[in-house]
Design a protein around this nucleic acid. Sequence first.
DNA 1: CAATTAGGTGTTAAGTTAACACTTATTTCT
DNA 2: AGAAATAAGTGTTAACTTAACACCTAATTG
Lengths: 225, 225
Amino acid sequence: MDRAYKEVQQITLAVDCIIFGFNNNQLEVLLIHRGFEPEKERWSLMGGFVGNREDLDAAAHRILHDLSGLEDVYMEQVRTFGKADRDPYERVVSTTYSALILKERYKAELIAQYRARWFSIDDLPNLIFDHKQMIVSALNRLRRRVRTVPIVFNLLPKKFTLPQLQKLYEGILGEELDKRNFRKKLNTMDFLVKLDEKDMSGSRKGAYYYQFDEKKYDRDTNFNI
Amino acid sequence: MDRAYKEVQQITLAVDCIIFGFNNNQLEVLLIHRGFEPEKERWSLMGGFVGNREDLDAAAHRILHDLSGLEDVYMEQVRTFGKADRDPYERVVSTTYSALILKERYKAELIAQYRARWFSIDDLPNLIFDHKQMIVSALNRLRRRVRTVPIVFNLLPKKFTLPQLQKLYEGILGEELDKRNFRKKLNTMDFLVKLDEKDMSGSRKGAYYYQFDEKKYDRDTNFNI
DNA sequence: CAATTAGGTGTTAAGTTAACACTTATTTCT
DNA sequence: AGAAATAAGTGTTAACTTAACACCTAATTG
């Protein structure tokens, strides 16, 4: 590799993924259990190193794919953690990415392989390094973003019900919402399409399925919860 | 340097600073003219490389200090640019920081030394690499932040007038604000303290000076413009 | 057929934002 | 000395948004 800035020190660059999922009406993150040293028996985010010729975003997608089997996942960069001593074993600067996935799509066999587990965001285990802070900053970002950008639909199946959607918002925001006000607001958004079909699993009455119509959204990108 | 993750490739890590200032009732950024190859005669952000044992935030402050003479400057990390080919001369990943400085404190001799110049944000010159995008993302972040956090006072002298403050907000947000509504809102914020003294330079009548009282703000951190 | 359960539906008061025009203090000009 | 000029300073109202609140409905179970 030829180098233009020859005298400059180089640094190990990592990506850590905060993988959010919605399960049991709760917002959860997927963590992996370290069965190896260093920091054996503790939990960590899914992470990996950035290749020298690899786009940073591409590294995030590669790492998520290797560890989850998922492609085409919605991801956003959150921020970069660069304290010199954040990893006590070596200087590593890490850029975090937040990923929104559908739990059902996550390959179960990988859970076993990586000793992964879903944790509710308000019941996190002991995490290595600054991974707790990383989750907190990703969650804060998510809380801001879901109010103005329709990204929550990445956490739901194509067809979902309004009670589901409300529970999801409540899980993300960490507060209860008024059912009537919530539905009133969503009703003004034309890109939320009501289907003729009902989900009968959650109640006797059944709840109508809805779908997010991306094309309709692109025509009128107003979104505000 | 001992390395725990031995097989991993390392990457040159840089910091680029988007230095905002408020001059002539306009929001401006400070750029440096490259009098050397590569990319001679083009403009760029102030940047530098991150040392192997240096905190990322510390690197940003060091670079700003070296090039501006300023310490204790308000800075925030914006985001990390990591396209493999963003710098055509070598793979460099760059984390951007946005700095809010008071133009009067910037040492004039450094302007000459680095061939630096202030540019209005809506009249930027041709910039190297992805520096234009960096400015855009820093500006977008600034526009969001100034509405909920009292950071604009870093761009003004200790004593400032309300007409000045309004012009500053208008410069940042890129839109005109209603004078009466603006002042009504600020009047509800107790941490903005009116002094008995007037600035007579801008008008015949003179405008009262105000000060931002950090202690009062800390007691009641409501802020919303 | 009564009881149970979660889904679904509107109205009003309170608060916030947006729109708008005149008076005042001081300097400069004649 | 007084008139003209200039930017600073000041309140009210309508429009809109948000928050609070309770009952009926559809389907299943016993």
